Simulated assay, not measured.
Amino acid sequence: MNRTLTNTVKPDVISDFKEITKMRLAVSVVFSSVAGYFLGAEVVNFVVVLLLAIGGYLMVGASNAFNQVIERNLDAKMNRTKNRPIPAGRMSVTTATIIASLFTILGIVVLYIINPVTAMFGGISIFLYTCIYTPLKRVTPLSVFIGAFPGAIPFMLGWVAATNDFSIEPGTLFMIQFFWQFPHFWALGWWLYDDYKRGGFFMLPTGKRDKGTAIQIILYTIWTVVISLIPVFGVTGRLYLTPISGVLILILGIGMLYYAFKLYKNKDEKTAKQLMFASVSYITLLQIIYVLDKFIRIWI
Rank of each mutant, 00 (worst) to 15 (best):
T236D: 08
Y258E: 03
F17Q: 02
P243H: 04
G253P: 08
V49S: 05
F201Q: 00
W190S: 06
T94R: 10
A62F: 06
A65P: 12
P231N: 03
K270N: 06
S92A: 05
P170T: 08
K270S: 10
F127H: 02
A260V: 00
Q274W: 14
Y133R: 00
R84D: 04
V110F: 03
K137I: 01
V144M: 00
L142I: 13
G237F: 12
K208L: 08
W186A: 08
L229Q: 04
S228G: 05
F295E: 03
N45R: 15
A26G: 15
F201M: 08
L58I: 07
K262M: 05
P205D: 02
K262H: 12
V34F: 12
L58Q: 04
V69D: 00
G107E: 11
N2D: 14
L241A: 09
A96M: 06
Y129M: 00
P183M: 02
S143W: 03
Y220K: 01
G89K: 04
I126P: 12
L39P: 13
D165T: 11
Y264G: 00
F121T: 11
R238A: 08
L74A: 14
E71H: 07
T221G: 14
V47M: 09
G212F: 07
T206K: 07
Y37E: 04
L241K: 00
M256P: 10
D268A: 07
F103C: 15
T224L: 10
P183D: 00
F149R: 03
V232F: 00
A26V: 03
L173E: 05
I14M: 12
K10G: 03
M59L: 13
V110I: 09
P205W: 00
K197Q: 13
L128G: 02
